Lab assay of single mutants.
Amino acid sequence: MFYPNSPQTSPQLTQIPYGQQYAMMQRQIQQPYHPFATTEPQARLYPYHYQGPIQQEQGGFITQQSTAASPQYVQMRVTPVDQSIMSGYPNQTANGSSSSSFNYNIHPQQQQQQQQQQQQLRHHAMPVGSVPLQDDRYRKQLIVNYLAPDVTSTDLHELFSRFGELDGARIIYDKQTNMSKGYGFVYFCHAEDAKEAVERMSGYEFHGKWLKVGYSTNPLNIVPSNSSPYVHAGSRGAAG
Rank of each mutant, 00 (worst) to 15 (best):
E165L: 12
S100P: 12
E158V: 09
V151M: 02
Q111I: 13
Y50I: 11
K181C: 01
Y89P: 03
L121N: 04
H49I: 09
P149A: 05
S202V: 04
A23S: 07
M24P: 03
G19W: 15
Q120W: 15
G237L: 02
K175E: 01
Y104M: 15
Q92H: 06
Q26G: 10
Y215V: 01
S216L: 00
P108Y: 15
Y187R: 01
H232K: 01
H190E: 03
N91E: 11
N5V: 12
P90A: 12
G203W: 01
Q116E: 13
L121C: 11
Q112L: 13
G60H: 06
Y46S: 04
P108H: 08
S153H: 08
Q65V: 14
E192S: 07
S130P: 10
P32A: 06
H207Y: 06
A233H: 12
I172Y: 01
Y22P: 05
Y46K: 02
Q134V: 08
L13S: 02
Q120M: 12
Y46M: 03
S87F: 14
Q12H: 12
P11F: 14
S99W: 15
P90D: 09
L211A: 01
S6Y: 15
G52F: 14
G214H: 03
R122D: 02
E165I: 11
V223E: 03
L13R: 05
P132V: 04
I54P: 05
T217A: 01
Q116P: 11
V74G: 04
E158S: 10
S153W: 14
A239R: 12
Q72A: 05
G214K: 01
M201G: 02
G182H: 04
K209L: 00
F163V: 06
S84G: 13
H232M: 10
V74Y: 14
T152D: 04
S98Y: 15
N105H: 08
S100W: 14
H207K: 08
M201A: 03
R27C: 15
R170M: 00
S87M: 09
M201I: 12
K181Y: 01
K209P: 13
H157P: 11
V151L: 06
H124Y: 04
Y204K: 04
S153G: 11
H49R: 05
A69S: 12
Y50E: 03
V151K: 01
G129F: 15
P11A: 04
Y50F: 10
I106T: 08
H34P: 11
Q92I: 13
S97V: 09
S101V: 13
Q8K: 08
R137F: 07
S153Y: 05
A194E: 01
E196P: 09
Q119D: 03
G240A: 09
Q21C: 06
T67N: 06
P35G: 11
H232D: 06
P219S: 00
N178C: 04
L142C: 08
A68H: 15
T177Q: 04
